[in-house]
Amino acid sequence: MQIELNSTLTCPHCAHAQVETMPTDSCQWFYDCTKCGAVLKPLPGDCCVFCSYGTVPCPPIQQGDSCCG
């Protein structure tokens, strides 16, 4: 199975989109928007900011796991 490590995060406050590389060994619970400075946090039910605001879910979810380890 090929895991995609790049995801485009889109800020819900200013709509700025930024390509970021996802960590493979942990979840990313916070992300600072590089345009407006908003601190993004996962939405309820999501394990990380990539699952909430990214174009690609985090590596554990891509592998079929229920959450980041």
Rank of each mutant, 00 (worst) to 15 (best):
S7P: 00
M1S: 13
L9F: 01
C11G: 02
P42D: 01
H16E: 13
Q2V: 11
Y31I: 08
H16A: 13
F50T: 07
G45D: 10
Q63H: 09
C48P: 05
V56R: 10
H13P: 00
W29E: 13
C68T: 14
Q63V: 10
P23Y: 08
W29P: 07
T21Y: 04
C47E: 12
S52E: 10
T8L: 01
M22H: 09
D46G: 04
N6K: 15
A17T: 12
C51L: 09
T55W: 00
G37P: 00
P12Q: 06
C36K: 13
Q62R: 04
Q18F: 02
S7H: 00
C36F: 10
V56Q: 15
C48W: 00
C67L: 15
C58S: 12
P57C: 06
C51F: 14
C47L: 02
D46Q: 10
G54F: 02
S7V: 00
I61Y: 05
N6H: 08
P60N: 12
D25H: 07
S7E: 00
D25I: 05
M1E: 11
T24M: 08
C68Q: 12
C11N: 00
G37H: 06
T21D: 01
T24E: 10
L40Q: 11
T24L: 05
Q62F: 01
P42E: 01
K41L: 04
S66Y: 06
S52W: 07
M1L: 14
M1Y: 07
F50D: 09
H13E: 01
C58L: 12
H13A: 04
F30E: 06
P42L: 02
G37S: 11
M22A: 09
L43W: 12
M22E: 01
C33V: 11
C27H: 07
T8D: 01
N6E: 12
P12F: 03
I61R: 14
E4K: 08
S66W: 04
C48A: 02
N6M: 05
Y31S: 15
L40D: 07
G54E: 04
C14K: 06
G37M: 11
L40M: 10
C11F: 02
Q63A: 06
T34M: 08
T24G: 13
T24P: 04
